[in-house]
Design a protein around this nucleic acid. Structure first.
Lengths: 215, 215
DNA sequence: AAGTAACTTGAGGTGACCCTCAAGTTGTGT
DNA sequence: ACACAACTTGAGGGTCACCTCAAGTTACTT
């Protein structure tokens, strides 16, 4: 996996691995705010070594999230492969939120702090494109209401991420109920006129930017 | 307003007031995490004086939130007074979220950290009872779906609070769109069967408790 | 087996915020 | 005008997390 200029020394590679494993676990359990010192301790390594390998918290995210986002890609692909566009749309959302419910860190990442580095932001763009297709397909299929736009998925992610965060410890499946209500409002035959305009892509970018600056 | 054992000395009362005004403003603008030192500075008073009057952050909340929650009471009363139960239900939610959108601190309070002291928790109980009535009335009226329960309002509050938080700076009205989608899913004629059970009151209390401990 | 580059270590500096308390100041009743 | 209680002050101690770097250790090369 390490493909930099020259290979790491054996002990260094081991340490890097241990740090990554520990970080992945702690982020998953407790969110993205875990103290770096705790990660070092968990990996059995000094704080200095941690900084050798991951000079910033962001460096951890960059190393961890591509894998997570790949899971998202798979979910999106499955959604697009579903013969029923509406089922695909629903499956995508359920898959996405199930992933968030399993991984406190991913939930944090999607809700409060969109990632910024090249690789991760690429993955996000791919994600947006997938969402675009999934939404368009479900609208064309006639069961998703016509005034629902891809940007509305972002709003939905914010909404659900908080529901997941609050309820996950006590009722890990509670978010599914909230989503079910919401989905019933997204069906074409449930639609009532909406006067509030969708977020423009520019506005969405602004929000994401603000979010990232908050890290 | 001060009704303690003996009245405050004039200068002390003035300082208390200035602190309260500043705190209200800063909490409203920036949420409940504003450093206390900033409140003291804003009020033109030393940090020691701040601690004289408000020995904990919670003491500020106790002084500020009853007024805010009274506004909620008014909104609930208006909802119950609405001749159309569904319109009342919708009006209640819109009023509640509009309040949150105006006041970052209230948003924080409802989303992440339910208050704990007697007076405030009383107000919450009154709030719950109002929600109970509003929901029951709307269900009896036949336009709110029958499987929607008062506890589901809590979930909705979590969801919307995050939408509000993320979008308020860029598109202060964006939450209304999200709510509109959601409401379309709450209409009786939009209902599809839901398998996930509602949060029990006990579970809800647990979540609220966990939330409060997080302060 | 020795030499060197690569790596690790952890004490300690920085900064943000919290909170306390001894010393000083000011309002108020007499 | 006096005296005392009420009040204010802000330096300073505590905690927690971040981050650095000089000195020590270890893996790899020859």
């Amino acid at each position: 996996m390490a493909t930099g200029a020259r290979p790491l020394r054996a002990d260094a590679a081991r340490n890097r691995d241990k740090l990554l494993v520990t970080a992945t676990q702690l982020f998953g359990e407790r969110g993205l705010d875990v103290p770096l010192e705790e990660i070092a301790r968990g990996a059995g390594v000094s704080i200095g070594t941690l900084y050798n390998h991951f000079p910033t918290r962001q460096a951890f995210f960059d190393a961890i999230f591509p894998e997570r986002l790949a899971a998202l890609d798979r979910i999106a692909a499955a959604a697009l492969a579903d013969p029923d566009p509406w089922d695909g749309f629903v499956g995508f959302l359920e898959g996405l939120f199930a992933l968030q419910a399993e991984d406190h860190g991913l939930n944090d990442a999607l809700a409060r702090r969109f990632p910024v580095t090249a690789e991760v932001s690429d993955a996000c763009h791919r994600g947006f494109q997938h969402v675009d297709q999934i939404v368009r397909r479900a609208k064309d299929g006639g069961r998703l209401r016509a005034d629902f736009e891809p940007q509305d998925v972002a709003t939905l992610v914010w909404a659900m991420s908080q529901v997941i965060r609050e309820s996950m410890a006590v009722a890990p499946q509670a978010w599914r109920r909230c989503l079910a209500f919401f989905l019933d409002g997204l069906r074409a035959d449930a639609a009532h006129p909406i006067t509030v305009p969708v977020l423009t892509q520019g506005q969405l970018d602004e929000v994401i930017q603000a979010s990232a600056n908050r890290v």
